[in-house]
Computed example of a mutant assay.
Amino acid sequence: MAVMLTLVAIVEYPAGAEAAGQRYEDTVLALLDRHGGRLERRLRGTDGRTEVHVITFDDRAGYESFLVDPERTDLRAALGTAAPNTRVIEVHEV
């Protein structure tokens, strides 16, 4: 039986690359559905350089396939040093 996976992603944009980073996030978050993922919440820090995403996947395999999605990896590579720095934390309800 597959177990739903819930993640919190803390996304930080390099200074001067906020607009490019936000466009990247807009694009890759739209890819979640093809991997059984859903964006539950998207919050932007008042500094404009940080976002917090709450994302669920139907199972871990969906998350793993999202990470290696060729469209996602190509977009990230194209951004180079302007790519966001992301920390992902697996979470559960308490």
Rank of each mutant, 00 (worst) to 15 (best):
F66R: 13
L43R: 03
A15V: 14
D26T: 10
V28I: 12
P70C: 03
V52W: 07
I10S: 06
V3Y: 06
Y13M: 12
L7G: 05
G37Y: 07
T46I: 09
G37K: 13
I89M: 13
F57Y: 11
P70I: 09
L39R: 13
F57P: 06
L39T: 07
V28A: 01
E64I: 01
N85Q: 15
Y24E: 06
L39D: 06
N85D: 15
E71P: 04
G45L: 13
V68I: 14
E18A: 10
V88T: 11
T56C: 05
E25N: 10
V3Q: 09
D59C: 01
G37D: 11
V3T: 08
V68S: 13
V54R: 11
L5W: 09
G36K: 02
V3W: 04
D74Y: 15
R72W: 02
V91H: 10
R34T: 12
E25P: 14
H92D: 00
E90W: 04
D58E: 04
E40Q: 14
R44M: 12
L79Y: 07
G16A: 01
E40Y: 04
L67R: 15
L67P: 03
V54T: 05
A2H: 02
V8R: 14
E18I: 03
T56F: 04
D33R: 09
E25T: 13
T46Y: 04
D33L: 11
E64Y: 05
R72V: 01
V54Q: 03
D58Y: 03
L67C: 13
A78T: 00
Y24M: 05
V8E: 04
R34G: 14
A61N: 10
Y24A: 01
V52C: 08
T6W: 06
A15R: 14
A78R: 11
L75E: 10
R34M: 10
T73I: 14
